[in-house]
Design a binder for these strands. Structure first.
Lengths: 225, 225, 225, 225
DNA sequence: CATGAATGAGTGTTCATTCAT
DNA sequence: AATGAATGAACACTCATTCAT
């Protein structure tokens, strides 16, 4: 699934060499946690600024100074809450991960008694929605997140458990003679890859709806045959 | 397919805006094809330098000056053959596209009378091999290539024709009642997405061979059911 | 001797945390040695700029950008020849050390057959001259040079050998019953400390000449009694 | 004596120019002496924080924010009692000067009837002890104190009176034919320079005790011969 | 008075690009 | 053509200082 991309090379391009790594930790620890209202607002403003800039398709504008400007805070405030630029991306990534987690949970509950087809359709739809929100943001995150950064785990890992449960409960609908774990694992990865691709790599002449439907068909074919 | 990623935002980060914007066009126009032997060698050395640097997992080292150094030519010579940094990536991309084209052609010819299964297996294998060669290079290319750059078209487009032919010739083996074009189109995209994913997003505990086999199974299931 | 101050804390104040130390070495190695005439001139201009700024008593103006400006070169050129700011100070220090070495040698030769008194007077005078040239530069060097930086060895070490030779050759003039090495060692340190103090810590109502003469007297008293 | 160093260039590096230049004076004038207990405790905590940080050999950590943190007060409180960062160093320097004054007085009284040798030994020992307490603090003070800052006068000035009295009372033990004032003056400077050097510039292979003894010998030789 | 969030000028450093030789 | 020294806009980040609460 796409998140593994992180591990191949993180923090590419010209992000400045991080300062003394020991210092980073020390600093990270010493950065204030935003306890006061105003502080929390500042943090939100910073994170939102990044997504706002990327929505403008201005990846080159994602500089610390510009982020601060768009957030309407001073550059000093940015560094009050984030030890360095990368930490901003990590925070955004964290927000996204939580969002996915909640979505998976919700879908699992809502479709407790649906058929395999309905369940797969729901899951693919939810994943596509999650990805579709900010595709550029997402692509940038992939490039900028470092290997093994806290929370850089794959979304597929999150899907895996859900599919394991769902498949086990619907064994009758599926092909016999297959290891449950492997099936769940592959399915989770397919959902992730196909929904990700539907959003980020969809060719101009295929609608999002069509891509979704075709993804569902492919997954079901894999599960059933 | 991954190449569409290009279109979402190209040339991100801090690539310098050239002082003289006209230069790129003017230069590109006036740039003579390297017909002489030495010139061609220089160009090749530059392109190879980029891949060599990335194979060292040193994405941060992909600077024009470093490229020139690794290529064993002066930075001035780099700008003799490429109007700017982006053009280097475009050239590498071009090389890769040609390579894929030749591979598709070869596979098509070699498996003219194979079964669907054998054909799919061969195609997936070839694509994975193509991708596996330089995964970092690939990931960087995605980030750096500009929208609509010459040759930035998807590999899936290249696969599409091949699959159309192959599927048409093996209609008997497949499910009835499906639009040939759509089937070919989706299959091509699945091959691209899955092989790409197998190389770039494969989780650590799944071997490349297993990922390949599972990809083949998924595609055949889609084609047959 | 004052140089030992280096070891107590180097690189104080707000000099930025050095980047990845491995990178520093890599860079240092890769920085061009100034072989061409123009390059050598650039390097000299940079070093001179620092001393020029300090002579204006403007220690706060010793910033890389200002150094470049005063040197009449671009900031990029500064970093073409020095991996970081500290390296500039190290280079200046190196120049100074060489100068002291040559001076010690000259004095030793010139006073091969002088009395102890004449020899001490010459050495003290030479050291004071050396120190007097750029006192602020010197004081700054002490603050900025890192512990154990190449060439950060004490000048006293350089004087030690000279005094050992000189004292051995003039044993008759001196007090008996003293270890030659220790005598040479302490004398060298006295010369260094007193001449350094005469320049850097001399109270306003004592002339440089008087300070020198008194230093000579004190050293001779120590050697003779 | 080392304090003169201050006059060569003070407050080096990047200390911010206050936005409102009048503030410092205005504040200084209006700043009430911390008569209340809590206020005095705050001031002490701030001064101690600086020395505590420097004892950790963390000269780079001497930032106003960090000082406040270590002192356990808010940055706002720091600026309640000190108009700017420099004032903190001045206060520390002031404390140190008072301490030296008291020490000189004590030694003078305690050795009212001792020999020259004993007196010199006591004085050198006391000075070394005074310097040895916080060598880094000391070195930093030298760099940071401004020219002509209140109290930036030399310690030698403080020693001068003491030695004048002591020498006058022990004229019999010393060499004839020398101006008393000059002798006292030079001796005071030697004590200061040598004790300072013994602490801050002592080479690794010479013990503090040995450096002290040798300093005493040199001074006595100067006084007697 | 105390707090600590906010400020922003200024710092060291990088690297795509230019151009005199 | 080829060279490589020079350029300088732009970047990530720091920290003395201010001021609303």
């Amino acid at each position: 699934m796409y998140m593994y991309t992180y591990s191949h090379y993180g923090y590419a391009d010209r992000m400045r060499t991080p300062k003394n790594p020991a210092r980073r930790i020390a600093h990270a620890a010493s950065r204030r946690k935003p306890t006061q209202l105003r502080a929390r607002q500042t943090v939100e403003a910073i994170l939102d600024a990044v997504t706002r800039i990327l929505r403008r398709n201005d990846a080159a504008g994602v500089t610390t100074n510009h982020i601060a400007e768009v957030a309407g805070v001073s550059i000093g405030s940015v560094y009050q809450y984030f030890p360095d630029k990368r930490a901003i991306f990590e925070a955004i990534h964290g927000r996204h991960v939580e969002q996915i987690d909640r979505m998976v949970e919700r879908t699992l509950v809502a479709h407790a008694s649906s058929s395999v087809e309905e369940f797969v359709r729901a899951m693919v739809g939810a994943m596509i929605d999650a990805h579709a929100q900010d595709p550029e943001l997402y692509a940038l995150l992939m490039t900028q997140m470092a290997h093994g950064a806290a929370g850089a785990q794959d979304f597929a890992v999150r899907l895996h458990g859900a599919f394991r449960l769902a498949i086990a409960a619907r064994a009758r609908e599926l092909k016999r003679g297959h290891d449950l774990d492997r099936l769940a694992f592959v399915t989770a990865h397919m959902v992730d890859a196909l929904s990700h691709g539907a959003v980020l790599r969809r060719p101009p002449n295929v609608s999002l709806a069509a891509a979704r439907e075709e993804s569902v068909r492919a997954i079901l074919a894999y599960l059933r045959c």
